[in-house]
Design a binder for these strands. Structure first.
Length: 729
RNA sequence: GCUGCUGUAGCUCAGUGGUAGAGCACUUCCUUGGUAAGGAAGAGGUCAUGGGUUCAAGUCCCAUCAGCAGCUCCA
């Protein structure tokens, strides 16, 4: 007998062969019908497995029956739907190789190894086949095999990837679980729904390429994405949210509202801020500048390029070489010498090519006596490097920190001067892979609202605390109040990090301590730290529930060491300061792109590029309209008049579509009374006639308070983390 | 960077190997109006670029460039 504790606290004994499904059936037939899976001792398992398996050798367990009402059950449903999709694909495309088929935040995918291309045109027949499988309602059956049996089964089914995975990825597992549904058998950890009929709504969404085990050099697979739900209604809501996200796309709105442009003639990932977009950015910049002055930051400016040595010292150049724009060489032969060094290091330079390259470098003016004398590869590299260092080499700056470090070093610092807080809207350039570029969200030239704080070790926690407070303050000012912090620490097993063990431990401990004390929600991510230090990233949820990585605070004990930063302590000895890198918005491109989507283009009054438009009813009141605009501008508003000789209806429609917060309709009546009829974009109606003074006072208050009167939200409320479930099998 | 899809007027998009199309926007004229589109006329094109196949290419093929989706990456 097994002792089972149910969520209501009741305890009962069941025979070892009893399944959670049978327990449900004993309670009520309806419950049994609703059961999707079970939660035993906190983990989700099949409802069709006998208790003795689930108890894992013990004689008691806690059991929760998961039904369509439990979010955890949705993942089980979707994973089963992935199996059904795979089954349908195998029926329609014989010879399909199976890779992995996990669930995602809102659905599932399955990777297929298949020569024939699946396109969206194939979706209807795949969906039809899936519907047929679901209608048959066959059960999912679990069975266990030894490694040898599993290998035999998978190779018998010609599933080479599964065979490989059992041999390599699952080498530690003595036995392996499989699930059978009709003729379809798949190596799978489970759990699954009892029968296919539980799936009430599903849809294939897209097909795209993927790599076997996420390895870029691995086999190319076709990934089919889909979603599945307990009800048609849930699915419709989800699909509507996808449509809503499309409607908000900042690339579409940015074009329609003339906020920014990315022009192939200028270059991939290089953003042109059009006047309206630039206005939003300028307002945000002014807002932050003012805030930083109050918090005793000092403004600095630094150039867009710097000597390569600067980034060699910082470590950025060697670490991120492939994602930077190529260095600018002052000497014609610089590029050839640089190429030779790299190829020598990689051992890929043939004697013939070496001679050719050197001859070319010589023609360009490289003096190579020392190189000729070199007898080993190391000596050759040293000779080339020595020459290289005598030449000018510049890099478009990928980070602002080295420049700010040099500013710190420009004078001797006393402990009395610390903390030194250097702030700059620093524009940096990164040669992101073409496939990564995405509107303003991922660009090659970006401006960070950057600052570097240099402080004594004992000041670190207080500075970090204040920085967290600043980030929270600025996010709140734009109405973003739903966020969590992700603490990214190093992966102890990796060697990509610079600096000593003590420094890392100290940095991570400080961040963790302050975060814990702050009361902020935070999660820890191993292996996500920057190469020079741990960081706390702000993950902000927007109006329709999507999460964005915006602000970041990073703690750095390493750059001060690399650049040998110092200050004179009270003991009259030299000490090493600690650096904090921080950017509350992250980059202005990304931040504004995110804001466009968050507000769906309808910015609050204090941020709207055009705040007020004056609409004369007839040409006869054009002069009065101009006068109103003039007075609005004198009061500090961004306003214009629509003086076209068309009907006021048309002017209103255009202003509404341009998402201008307020429209002031003026006709003979208003001109007579020195007043305006205010139309509110949000309410989409006339809210009455005010004197111009009263209207200005109303708008001024709204701007002063940074009121956010409307955030267009999605009706969609079912939200889960966008994390893909770990897919061990 | 990889896999796939896409590229026609300023925008959104039709276009079956045989003379380049629509709606909106734009320009001009008429209209002078009261809270989401008044009317008419006009202008606007190297069909992304470069090759190829063909009597004939926007349409078929190849390459390049750019965009999109996903993968991989993100200081």
């Amino acid at each position: 007998m097994i002792n089972v504790t149910l969520p209501d606290g009741s305890v009962r004994d069941y025979s070892e062969e009893t399944t959670p499904l049978q327990i449900a059936a004993a309670i009520s037939e309806r419950l049994a019908n609703d059961v999707i899976a079970a939660e035993v001792n906190g983990s989700v398992v099949d409802a069709m497995r006998p208790l003795k398996e689930l108890a894992e050798g013990t004689s008691s367990l806690t059991l929760k029956l998961l039904t369509v009402k439990d979010a955890a059950a949705l993942g089980v449903l979707r994973h089963s739907c992935a199996h059904i999709m795979a089954r349908a694909v195998m029926r329609l495309f014989p010879g399909t190789g199976l890779a992995f088929g996990p669930t995602t935040g809102h659905g599932f995918y399955y990777d297929f190894d298949l020569d024939q291309r699946i396109s969206e045109d194939d979706f209807p027949r795949i969906e039809q086949e899936m519907a047929a499988i679901i209608a048959e309602g066959e059960p999912f059956e679990r069975f266990m095999l030894s490694r040898d049996e599993a290998l035999e089964l998978c190779s018998g089914m010609h599933q080479a990837l599964k065979v490989e995975h059992i041999r390599e990825g699952l080498a530690e597992h003595p036995t392996l679980s499989f699930y059978r549904q009709g003729e379809f058998v798949d190596l799978c950890r489970g759990p699954h729904i009892p029968r296919a009929g539980k799936i009430k709504a599903f849809k294939l969404l897209s097909v795209a390429g993927a790599h076997w085990k996420g390895d870029q050099s691995g086999k190319s697979l076709q990934r089919l994405y889909g979603t599945a739900w307990f009800s048609k209604k849930d699915q419709d809501q989800y699909l509507e949210q996808i449509e809503e996200a499309k409607r908000r796309d900042h690339r579409v709105l940015g074009k329609r509202l003339q906020l920014f442009q990315i022009d192939p003639g200028v270059g991939q990932g290089l953003c042109l801020w059009l006047p309206k977009g630039a206005t939003i950015r300028a307002i945000l910049e002014d807002f932050i500048k003012k805030e930083l002055l109050e918090r005793e930051y000092e403004p600095v400016y630094s150039p867009h390029i710097g000597r390569v040595e600067l980034y060699e010292t910082s470590g950025h150049f060697p670490y991120y070489r492939d994602s930077q724009f190529a260095p600018i060489f002052g000497h014609d032969a610089g590029r050839i010498i640089d190429f030779c060094i790299r190829k020598l290091q990689e051992g890929e330079l043939s004697a013939e090519n070496e001679a050719t390259l050197l001859q070319a470098a010589e023609i360009m003016g490289y003096q190579h006596e020392e190189y000729r004398r070199a007898s080993s590869i190391e000596e050759k590299i040293a000779a080339l490097r020595k020459w290289e260092k005598q030449q000018e080499r510049y890099l478009l700056k990928p980070m602002n920190c080295p420049h700010h470090v040099e500013i710190y070093k420009s004078q001797p610092r006393s402990y009395r001067d610390l903390p030194v807080r250097l702030a700059e809207f620093g524009t940096v350039y990164r040669h992101e892979q073409t496939g990564e570029l995405n509107g303003m969200l991922r660009v090659r030239g970006l401006t960070q609202d950057d600052a570097h704080l240099f402080c004594m070790p004992e000041q670190v926690e207080e500075e970090f605390r204040q920085t967290l407070e600043l980030v929270q303050f600025v996010l709140k000012s734009v109405g973003l109040e739903d966020y969590r912090v992700q603490l990214s620490v190093r992966d102890p097993a990796s060697d990509k990090y610079v600096g000593s063990e003590e420094n890392w431990q100290q940095a991570e401990a400080s961040l963790r301590k302050v975060l814990s004390e702050s009361g902020l929600r935070f999660t820890t991510c191993e292996g996500e730290a920057a190469f020079y230090g741990p960081k706390a990233d702000f993950m902000v949820r927007d109006a329709i529930g999507r999460e964005w990585q915006l602000g970041t605070v990073q703690l750095d004990y390493n750059l001060p060491e690399r650049f040998e930063l110092e200050y004179v302590g009270p003991d009259n000895k030299m000490h090493r300061p600690v650096m904090i890198h921080r950017a509350p918005f992250g980059s202005l491109e990304r931040f504004v792109g995110m804001l466009i989507e968050h507000f769906a283009g309808a910015f609050p009054l204090w941020l709207a590029p055009e705040q007020i438009r004056v609409l004369p009813v007839t040409d006869h009141v054009a002069d009065y309209a101009r006068d109103v605009v003039k007075r609005l501008k004198q009061a500090g508003f961004r306003a214009s008049a629509d003086l076209r000789s068309c009907k006021v209806n048309a002017k209103i429609r255009d202003a509404q579509l341009e998402l201008i917060p307020y429209m002031l309709v003026v006709g003979p009546k208003e001109a007579e009374a020195n007043s305006v009829s205010v139309r509110d974009r949000i309410e989409s109606r006339d809210i009455g006639m005010l004197t111009l003074e009263d209207a200005i006072a109303k708008f001024e208050q709204e701007v002063r308070e940074k009121q956010i009167r409307q955030v267009i939200k999605s009706a969609f409320t079912i939200q889960q983390d966008e994390t893909t479930t770990e897919n061990e099998y």
